[in-house]
Design a protein around this nucleic acid. Structure first.
Lengths: 196, 196
DNA sequence: CCCTTATCCGGAATCAGTTCCGTTTAAACA
DNA sequence: TGTTTAAACGGAACTGATTCCGGATAAGGG
C-alpha cells in the first residue's frame, strides 16, 4: 500500500552518493557551485541519474533541505509548546511564524535557488504542511474567518526572495520581521469577530 | 543633470521594434513563446541588441508591463479617491491592495515569467513605488507601528507565484483573496495602538 | 543457478539564456 | 562637409539545465 516495490539497491546507493556530494559542494563552494554537472561528476554518476532521482535543480535543493524539514514538522505537530500543542492558538501561531522565520533565514540560499529554478515548486511538499497547520490554528483563533486564504497571507511575508532582499540589501533583521508579524497578529488574534 | 546624453536614434527605433515584436509574440503564442532568440529574430535585430537594451529576460518582461504600470502609479498617487488622496488612510490602503490584486492577476503570466527569470527583480522598479506608498499610508493609519516591514507583509500575499498557484491550481478567486486581505486589514486598522 | 524484465545507468545531444568582441554608425565638432 | 569617437550592432561562442535512448543490472521466478 505504501510502495509498489522497494527502491533498488544501486538506486539507493546513488541517491546517497549524490546527496553527500551535493552537500559537500554547497559547504565548499556555496549554492552557486551547485550545478547539475558538477554534482553528477562529484558523485561519480551520470547527470541522467541525478534527474531521474530528483527531477530538477529545484528538487535537488529541496532534498538537501529535507532533513531539517522533518524535524521542524515534528516540532510543530507534536513537539513541546508553544510550537507544539498545549497552549492557545494565538500563541502557537506566533511561535510557528517565528520558528519558520528562523528556519527560512537559516537556509535562505538553498530556498532562493530552489524557487529560482521553479517558482511554483515552493507550493509542493513542505508548504502544504505549513499551510494546513496554520489554517487549523487560524480557524481556532478566529472562527468564521477565511482561514485558508489568511494562512497564505501570513506565510507570504516569509517567502525567500522577500527575506533575502530585505535582510541582505536593506539591513533589516529577522527580529524586526518577526516584530512586524507580531504586530499583524496582535490586532488580528486579540478579538475574534464573534467572541463572547 | 538628467541624462548625460540623449538615446541614439537607431537605439530608440530598435527599442520600439523589439517591444512591438515581443508584444506580438505574447499575444500570439503566449509567454512561453517569448524566447530571446525569437524576439530578436521577429524584431530583425541581433540578440546582443536585445540584451543591451533590456538587460535580460526579466527586464524585457517588465518593459512589456511598464505602460499600464505608469497608469497605475498615477492613479494611486494623484488619481481620484479612494485610490488617490481624499479619504482616510485605511480606505486608501484597502483600495490600493484591491487594485494591485486586479493588476497582478491581469498580467500574471508576464509577472510570473519575470520573477522566474530573476527572483529579486521584483524588488526593483515598481515594487519600491508600491512599498513607499503603502508605508506612508500605514504610518498614517497606525502611528508607531513598523510601517516599513508591515508594508512588505501586506504586499507579500500578492506575489505572482502565490496568486498563480491558488488561482490556477485551487480555484481560489481574486475576490476571495481580497476578502482575506480585508479581514487582515479590518483588525489591523480599526484601532491604532495609541488611539484615544 | 539461470532467465526475464522492470528499473536504472551514463553521457551525448538539445535547447535557451547570456556574454563577447570585431565592425558599423549616429552625432558632436571643426 | 570631413573627422572623431562614444555608443550601438549582430551573431558566433559559451554555459548550464534538461531530455533521450541504447546498454547494463538488480531482483524475483523456475
Amino acid at each position: 500500500m505504501t510502495s509498489p516495490r522497494r527502491e533498488r539497491a544501486d538506486a539507493a546507493r546513488n541517491r546517497m552518493k549524490i546527496l553527500t556530494a551535493a552537500a559537500e559542494i554547497v559547504a565548499t563552494h556555496g549554492v552557486e557551485g551547485l550545478s547539475m554537472a558538477e554534482v553528477a561528476a562529484a558523485a561519480g554518476v551520470g547527470v541522467g541519474t541525478l534527474y531521474r532521482r530528483f527531477g530538477d535543480r529545484s528538487g535537488l535543493a529541496y532534498a538537501l533541505i529535507d532533513e531539517r524539514e522533518r524535524e521542524f514538522q515534528t516540532a510543530f505537530i507534536e513537539g513541546p509548546p508553544p510550537l507544539g500543542p498545549g497552549v492557545e492558538a494565538p500563541a502557537r501561531i506566533r511561535a510557528f511564524l517565528h520558528a519558520l522565520t528562523d528556519r527560512t533565514v537559516e537556509q535562505l540560499d538553498l530556498l532562493l535557488m530552489a524557487e529560482t529554478a521553479a517558482p511554483l515548486a515552493r507550493f509542493g511538499g513542505a508548504y502544504d504542511g505549513y499551510h494546513a497547520h496554520l489554517s487549523m490554528l487560524i480557524a481556532q483563533a478566529r472562527p468564521g474567518a477565511d482561514a485558508y486564504v489568511l494562512a497564505d497571507a501570513l506565510l507570504a511575508p516569509l517567502a525567500a526572495p522577500l527575506l533575502a532582499h530585505r535582510l541582505r540589501d536593506h539591513g533589516v533583521t529577522a527580529e524586526r520581521v518577526k516584530g512586524g508579524l507580531d504586530d499583524l497578529l496582535a490586532a488580528f488574534t486579540t478579538r475574534t469577530p464573534g467572541a463572547p
